[in-house]
Computed example of a mutant assay.
Amino acid sequence: MADDDLTVTMNTETHRFEVKLGAETAFAEYELKGDTIAFPHTVVPDAFAGQGVAGRLVQASLAYAKENKLWVKPTCSFFHAYIAKRPKLHELVHPDMREGLATP
Rank of each mutant, 00 (worst) to 15 (best):
T7G: 11
A28I: 08
I37W: 00
T75G: 10
A84M: 14
M97A: 10
R56T: 02
F27K: 05
E31W: 10
T36F: 06
V58D: 06
Q51D: 06
V8K: 05
E91D: 15
L57N: 01
K33P: 01
L101P: 02
G52N: 02
E13W: 03
S61D: 00
A28Y: 06
D4M: 11
A84E: 10
P45K: 12
A81Q: 13
L57V: 04
L92C: 00
T25M: 08
A84F: 05
A60E: 02
A47F: 04
A47K: 08
Q59L: 09
T7S: 08
V93K: 05
Y64D: 03
G22D: 07
E99F: 13
T12N: 10
L21Y: 08
G22K: 13
K69L: 10
L6V: 09
V44N: 02
F78A: 03
L101V: 03
F79R: 04
F78V: 09
K69S: 15
Y82E: 07
H90E: 12
N68S: 09
Q51F: 06
A47G: 05
A60Q: 02
L70E: 02
A47V: 14
D3C: 01
V93P: 00
A2T: 11
P45C: 15
F17K: 05
F39I: 01
D96A: 15
A60H: 03
D96W: 10
D4E: 15
D35L: 11
H94M: 11
V53K: 03
L57M: 02
C76I: 06
R16Y: 06
A23N: 00
T9S: 12
P104N: 13
N11Y: 07
V72T: 04
N11L: 09
V19A: 06
S77M: 11
Q59Y: 02
G55V: 10
R56E: 09
M10T: 01
E24H: 15
A26E: 00
E29Q: 15
T103G: 14
A23F: 11
H94E: 09
R86Q: 13
G52A: 13
A23T: 01
F39N: 04
K69C: 04
N11K: 03
